[in-house]
Design a binder for these strands. Structure first.
Lengths: 165, 165
DNA sequence: TTTGGCTGTCTTGATGTCAAGAGGCTTTAT
DNA sequence: ATAAAGCCTCTTGACATCAAGACAGCCAAA
């Protein structure tokens, strides 16, 4: 089956036959697939009344384990946004009753963001829904192929995750 | 080598041992790798004084072949942005002298966006630079592994590219 | 104890994007 | 010929994000 990247590569070979565009075969597909995944995730979360950024914050808290609380600083290192963005997000999640802000008993500058009961429920439901949708997307591949793909991707990602990038 | 997704999966297995989080092994790596690639691309383009979105528009025109012109409508289907965004982008690229707006001789509503000589030069330089950087990232893998990875990714992307998504 | 630097959160102002709609032009059907 | 419908680009207003800085509280060194 042909995809857009095949067409992209064909166009470059026609216009710039002097260039080796082989890298695009892998990396353009990664970028394009990620865009499609973003759209699919947005649709999956909409079923639970959540935006993607809400899912990111709620699941970071959920993964932290009981009592499901993290500081804004910890949240922003996990979600890779700036502090201003995180302030805004916590405001809105608190407005929806999914998290609450508590003073940090050990640091009076600090704040703790804690998942409410309904926030935890949303996070758990949305995660299950996401996994169901993603399983469908991956049905194109056998289990062995998925494992192989995961391994190859890990090799490409690991340098970014382990060297300060 | 371990990566962030391994840690993510481990956290979910601890908190939600009832769930099968296998899909994350592939799809979270795709999303995370795409984010890292965006940053790397931004850095590569900055060497040529270009933003990523400028590269996207200029290379779409470059790939169109002589005389390197497309309508705004064609550009927005290729770059997946809305018409308001494309108007804004064309304005700024025209301000930098990289493209020019011409009236469409066949449709008086229409406009043609054409690459200038300096725009074409920028596009060609930036593409070569991007490919050089991407080749380094892919040096983690053998040629055979790259081909295999490309093939697996194609299977996942193709449904999106061929069914209206 | 006091001083200086550092940390954690929030505020501010600018920017890029989107959704929705306006306006002019073209196409189709009557 | 004319009306209705559709298309193409641009404009407008709202919004999420970021970068930079403000401010309060912490901590280490003298």
């Amino acid at each position: 089956m042909e995809d857009e990247v095949d067409r992209l590569v064909a166009a470059w070979r026609r216009e710039r036959p002097d260039l080796d565009v082989q890298p695009l075969q892998v990396l353009s597909r990664v970028s394009r697939l990620a865009r499609h995944l973003d759209r699919a995730r947005r649709a999956a979360f909409a079923e639970h009344g959540l935006e993607p950024w809400e899912f990111d914050v709620l699941t970071a808290l959920r993964r932290a384990g009981h009592p499901y609380q993290l500081s804004p600083g910890q949240l922003l290192t996990q979600t890779l946004v700036t502090s201003g963005t995180m302030t805004n997000r916590i405001d809105r999640l608190a407005g929806k009753g999914l998290v609450q802000r508590l003073p940090d008993p050990d640091d009076r500058r600090g704040v703790l963001v804690r998942l409410t009961a309904s926030g935890q429920l949303k996070a758990d439901e949305a995660l299950a829904g996401l996994l169901a949708h993603e399983r469908e997307l991956l049905a194109e591949l056998t289990g062995g192929q998925q494992a192989e793909l995961a391994g190859l991707l890990r090799q490409l990602v690991a340098p970014f995750d382990n060297i300060p990038g």
